[in-house]
Write a protein that binds this DNA or RNA. Sequence first.
DNA 1: ACGGCATGTCAATCACTGTTGACTTAAGCT
DNA 2: AGCTTAAGTCAACAGTGATTGACATGCCGT
Lengths: 193, 193
Amino acid sequence: MGDAAVLERAAPRRRDADATRAAILEAAKAQFARSGYDHTGLRDIAAAAGCDVALIKRYFGGKEGLFTEALKASFHPDRLKAWDRATFPRDVAAMMAGSPHAAEAQTQSFQFLLRAATSPTTAPLLNVAVQERFLAPIGEWLGGDEAAARARVLAAVFIGFLVERLIREAPLTGREREVFVERAAATFETVLK
Amino acid sequence: MGDAAVLERAAPRRRDADATRAAILEAAKAQFARSGYDHTGLRDIAAAAGCDVALIKRYFGGKEGLFTEALKASFHPDRLKAWDRATFPRDVAAMMAGSPHAAEAQTQSFQFLLRAATSPTTAPLLNVAVQERFLAPIGEWLGGDEAAARARVLAAVFIGFLVERLIREAPLTGREREVFVERAAATFETVLK
DNA sequence: ACGGCATGTCAATCACTGTTGACTTAAGCT
DNA sequence: AGCTTAAGTCAACAGTGATTGACATGCCGT
């Protein structure tokens, strides 16, 4: 088994600070998104990145530093611009109807944000991030004078569906799923209107 | 100061298992709502309840048991029935526009819910509670065949606004507040329709 | 009054986690 | 090749928090 483990790692990664740093960051993004700030151990991240815990301190200063950087790296508001305002309601509604585990990559950054919402350590960081990287872009996307307030509403609804999906246990199926998507789409429609 | 502390507690509570249990539960509800599951220490709860940590184990089995019970005790779906379906959208919208700290008592149970949503330990417990004590009553309130799916949507939107308010930093004022309330009300209107 | 049991207290244990400094090893340059 | 330095490893530390069992004490029935 030890041999297998060694074999799996074709190239044990020649000493490369940048690559290691990137690996840590990637692992951190995934772990933080999956388990939240509190339930993510630095040892887990290090193991996933294939390196030692001490390197996290060296490269990121500590857990909070790593989190902050992962937060920045995890959020790509550019993706917002790719959304088509016409199909947005139904697309998002369908996404929200999916299982919490499926399409995790799509929503990793949001899960990330969400899981950060309840830790006192991360709440302040989150607030800034949401403002800069969520509300502002959404407001811009919406346009108009009342963009700020309307962005808040959109953000609220968006987050709400994320949470609902997060705590949902049994997947939505059949008629229930249809109705859910339909109503959710109608809701987003109203928000955008 | 020691004297003062003693004096504050007029009756150090004669030995009464029920009263102690209730005190613990009350303290737990407040603490869990304020700080979430992870950041609430049993010692804090015990201190607030004026007893020893070990009693928590005796009466509730452990932290998780205490949480489960606090979750049940914290939820009062009866309040739903008091809501008037006609004025619901605007009432709720106005409530959501309020400051996160004001009217904390009103929303303690929801804070509680919210803080539990993002912890892996409590998410399953929460799921059951939400299903039984939130979705079911809402579904009943909404009525109709598609009540279940529509209840999910309402719950999602509701929770979303709660979160938004929770992480909001500056209070909403003036025109922004007006627009927010208006848009939020319209959203709830759509959900109920 | 007194003995037994419920109630409450105390301190130790155990597991976990972030942090840290000393140590080892590989890479790259002269 | 040999040396220097960055890159990576290791083990220990310190703080925390839940859990636990042994112990003390007040209450109630006899």
